[in-house]
Structures are given as structure tokens and as C-alpha cells.
Design a binder for these strands. Structure first.
Ligand SMILES: [Zn+2]
Ligand SMILES: [Zn+2]
Ligand SMILES: [Zn+2]
Ligand SMILES: [Zn+2]
Lengths: 156, 156
DNA sequence: AAATATTTGACATTTATTACCATTTGCAAT
DNA sequence: ATTGCAAATGGTAATAAATGTCAAATATTT
């Protein structure tokens, strides 16, 4: 019983309460339980995995609520969506080493080719623990079209 | 008519034919058309978008085929899946700046915290064209558990 | 405690992806 | 060119993830 509660560090709990109050969000037991579960694990669970875990302690939770609460948590910066910015796979015939920028305004995905980004060194302190094979970088920002539309050309 | 065909660079076409022959894959018009379409655009389309485009030239293509062919192309290195290594979103309560390693063996997602990775400089040559806001790095490799199991501890 | 605004739960629906299988097609050997 | 067979396709049906709806329940305010 105390096992999972100790993971809901009072830091995260305070941040949760603060953020909810700040934005006029109700402090519901569902929100608390879902964030508590997510904060108590490091395996980057899916919505379904969180649902499976939470329903043990909170009999009757709806899966809909889990999806909704997760979205809320992400929107207010209390959690982060690691994969799948959208729910569809995107394909690329360019198999050369390059990276991507996703436009936060229109969702476009642009190629970022830059030599300097292809020479990242893997963190030494982790060698031995894990094996690094490759990497790709996901930038987020704004594409040329949306930049032009908004007129926000910061040249600084 | 020549508009889209010129994009199917003879390089990619040769690579396609070579790879198919090398692995005993049939050279079907569906595979050719789908790769031709994908290679002729840079917008990282979804399977559905490719289907919409391809069916114009290849009346009667099945959406199933598009999904299947894309999978084949990715498996044989002729294309790349940019988003959604799997079709589910994963969540993280750690909103601090960090990166992720996805284990190619078991699919686990691990946090990679390393200061050196948080100081990437955005490619200068792109300043002005696009606006960079943030980034995250997706490593792929193998997690400690799978590394240990396979006994492949390369300490070099 | 009562009034009000928000959130939830159950169900239905949409959307992405995969499974299945009969038919067709690519391809190699006549 | 014809034949034979393995491989691939098309159509449909089935999963699975995610979202929409709305009355009932709950949190917050008064
Ligand atoms: Zn844009
Ligand atoms: Zn790309
Ligand atoms: Zn693993
Ligand atoms: Zn993480």
C-alpha cells in the first residue's frame, strides 16, 4: 500500500495541486491516481497499461477517463507524450541519416539534414549498461510556411 | 504525367530492383507505384495519403496492399518509418529535458539523462527558414536486461 | 448545505492497422 | 509462348487505439 504511494513524490503531488488550482482544474481522485501511477514508474506506459494498474486501486475507472486525464496532464505540463504525436505512422523514402522537424502549427514533418547532428557521441557513463546502435532527433518548431504566415521572423 | 515519374530517380528505382532481386521479391506494379510515390514526395506521408495518391494511377489498389508494401519496403531498407515505432502513445511523468532509448529486442523505453545531449545547437544554415523550439533524441539499441541475456558485453 | 460548474462512466463511433483467404500475378522452367 | 507454383494482391472482416456523447456523479463555490 505504501509501496506505490511513496513514489508519488510530494514534489510531483505539490506540482499537481498547484497546477490544478492555477488553471481551475478540479482535484479529482482519478487525476490524482493516474498521475500518481505514472509518476511512480519509469517504463513509459501506454494508456492501457496505466488503466490496468489504476483500476486495481480505483475500482470502476473508465478507460475514457484515463485517456482524457492523460491528455489533460500533457496539456498542462504534468506529463509528456513520448511516442506518437499523432496516431498514424509516417513514411520516408529517404533512408539516409537525417532528422525531422515537426511543425507545431500545421503538423508538417520536414527533413533536417545537417552533418553536425550526425556525430553525436553516446553518453560514456552509460556504455556497458546499454548498447547504443543509432539515434534520430525530433525537433519541434515551425515550418517555413507557418513562419511566414505568422510574420514572426526573429532574426536574432 | 512526367511530373511524378521524374521524381522516381533512377537511383531509387535501381535500388528497388536490386533489393527485390537480391531477396527474391517479386517486382510488382504495386510495389513499384507505392515506392515511386513515396520517393517522389518529401512530406512524410501516412499510409492513407499514399493510398489516396497511388489509387489515382493504379485503379483498384487495395489499402491492405499499401500497408503491406510499406512494411516490406521498411523491412528491406527501401523506406523508413518516421513516427510510431508501435501504434500506441507512451507517457512519461518526467517532464524534465531528457531523451529515450528504445530497446530493439524487448521494446522497453528507457530514459537517457545526459547533460551533453541537452546542448545541441540548431543547424545555423536553417535559421530564418524554420524556427526551432526544442528537440528530443530517440536512441535505439538494447536495454541492460536484454544485453545481459544475450551475453554480448562489449566493453570496448 | 445548496447551487453551479466540472468531470466522470458507459456506450457508441471513428480511425489506424492487421488477419484471413480466394483469386491473381510474377517468374522461372520448360 | 505455355505451364506450374510460389508469392502477392484485393476484398472483407476483425482488432485495437483513440475520440465523441451525454446523463449521472463529483468537486468547488457560495
Ligand atoms: Zn507549419
Ligand atoms: Zn525524412
Ligand atoms: Zn530490452
Ligand atoms: Zn522518459
Amino acid at each position: 500500500m505504501t509501496r506505490h504511494e511513496k513514489h508519488f513524490s510530494s514534489n510531483k503531488e505539490k506540482e499537481f495541486e498547484f497546477t490544478c488550482r492555477k488553471h481551475g482544474l478540479s482535484l479529482t481522485i482519478q487525476r490524482r491516481a493516474i498521475l500518481e501511477n505514472l509518476a511512480g514508474r519509469t517504463d513509459h506506459p501506454t494508456a492501457d497499461q496505466i488503466y490496468d494498474a489504476v483500476k486495481e486501486h480505483l475500482k470502476g475507472v473508465s478507460k475514457t477517463t484515463v485517456y482524457r486525464v492523460l491528455e489533460t496532464l500533457v496539456n498542462f505540463g504534468l506529463a509528456r507524450k513520448v511516442n506518437n504525436p499523432e496516431a498514424k505512422a509516417r513514411f520516408d523514402a529517404d533512408t539516409s541519416r537525417h532528422h525531422h522537424l515537426t511543425c507545431i502549427t500545421c503538423g508538417a514533418v520536414l527533413d533536417i539534414h545537417a552533418q553536425q547532428l550526425n556525430r553525436l557521441s553516446f553518453p560514456e557513463e552509460l556504455h556497458g549498461d546499454v548498447e547504443f546502435i543509432d539515434y534520430s532527433i525530433n525537433f519541434n518548431g515551425r515550418c517555413p510556411a507557418c513562419l511566414k504566415k505568422s510574420g514572426a521572423k526573429n532574426t536574432e
